[in-house]
Design a protein around this nucleic acid. Structure first.
Lengths: 239, 239
DNA sequence: CGTTGGTTTGAAAGGACTCAAGAGGGGTGG
DNA sequence: CCACCCCTCTTGAGTCCTTTCAAACCAACG
């Protein structure tokens, strides 16, 4: 267990990318047929089960990844042994882009849930990038989105009392369905690493918010949000 | 006071960029003469005095900036009125890149010290980018550096006890000169916004670190670091 | 020389942490 | 299929760190 499980490796090149279900939000969104025809290296479609590592910090960086399904965490280790989750990767997001600039990954990537990723050799990007301004524009855009998420994370998930931070976190991930919403939860330890608190504090904050009626049906993997506007209000005014 | 002061506006186009003192680390580092000849819009060289605003969050984004001298803070306002400094811009850094992707700035930029910046119309980048793969590569690189700094900031400056965070902050900015080093300080309020504590806490942490002999000669704008290895040790082991 | 904005310092209150014990769930082996 | 085990989550009590509110201090400036 804990090893990456390859669901299918046989996916090669253009035709599959062209029909990719998340293509509109993924890296190759704006490529046309001519662009695809320039892809010669194999692009793997891999499956990872929850908690399995995708790459580790400092490892030789040869690929860029796009997430198709599930959630992935990017963990940055500090020199003193402490660590922080610097980004929560969501479907459609690009990660491991540092391979395009340097020779090793700057943080570790681990699947938080079962996950599907596309593993793209970095030379595909370099070669395509030379010839296709569209791809380059797309990469810059994805990079910008990553920066933006990282900064938003930093600013919103790390400021104020924990309950407020947790509220903002839930709102960022909530999927509305009618009048109420559901938000995914992760291991309390991981959530603590995202918000810079101990896992016990996350647990207490969830319990406290449930008492206030802001959330309900807390399980390991999700919470319900009975009234999303109430929670939104709480996250903005602390009430 | 507090208004941007234009020191000189007359700087136009290629010739000045080619002789720019920080060109090696700035946006146009890898451009050649042919690339420069494609620049037709005026690139302004502006001076701002300490504490003056450069642009504000939500403002129409038409320019990208590179910092030539001084320090600039990027402040992100949250919906609830709280705010965080998401990045400390240092000489050679690019900021305001979100103008290339969207129509408004995602945070406010303010000079922390007297500062010199180059203000580059975004169409210069778009047009040049179409024709010069080198520039595009450079932009991607700068963007990557910004993401990396943002993540490093997030991970290192926001984890652990304040004294340790402060130590890491000082080490990031320290300029070594012989056996000891000097690090710049900013308004305690701003430093608090970078590390997510109140300004009084910054003040206390500085005082405490001085008592421990880790730093000395605290002034409003700088500290001395008598022994940089001692501080480094402290930042890694809390001792 | 008084004003002003920024910094330091003090004391009390509040929030998060630590250490510790107990409860719940899922998986494994009998 | 059930019992047991392990991992994770929850909850409790005391301590430590940061915040809050306040007052004093300092340096620059008019």
């Amino acid at each position: 267990m804990m090893k990456p499980v390859e669901i299918k490796i046989a996916w090669q090149g253009q035709s599959d990318c062209e029909t990719c279900t998340i293509r509109s939000s993924a890296l190759f969104a704006e490529l046309n047929e001519e662009d695809f025809s320039k892809i010669h290296s194999p692009i793997d479609d891999l499956g990872y089960e929850a908690n399995s590592p995708i790459y580790s910090q400092g490892e030789s960086a040869q690929h860029v990844y796009t997430l198709r399904q599930g959630y992935v965490k990017l963990l940055h280790l500090n020199p003193d042994g402490t660590s922080r989750i610097v980004r929560l990767v969501r479907p459609g997001d690009l990660f491991g882009m540092e391979s395009l600039l340097g020779d090793h990954y700057k943080h570790a990537a681990t699947a938080l849930t079962n996950a599907h990723v596309c593993k793209i050799p970095k030379n595909v990007i370099s070669i395509l990038g030379e010839e296709s301004p569209r791809l380059h524009r797309q990469i810059v855009k994805k990079w910008g989105e990553a920066l933006s998420q990282s900064e938003g994370w930093f600013s919103e998930i790390n400021t104020g009392r924990i309950e407020v931070r947790l509220a903002r976190f839930l709102l960022k991930l909530a999927k509305e369905s009618g009048s109420f919403a559901v938000a995914p939860l992760f291991k309390r330890e991981d959530m603590g690493l995202m918000m810079d608190v101990k896992f016990e504090t996350i647990s207490r904050a969830l319990a406290s918010m449930a008492e206030q009626g802001l959330i309900s049906n807390i399980t390991r993997l999700s919470v319900q949000i009975p009234n999303i506007d109430t929670l939104r209000n709480f996250s903005e005014k602390g009430i």
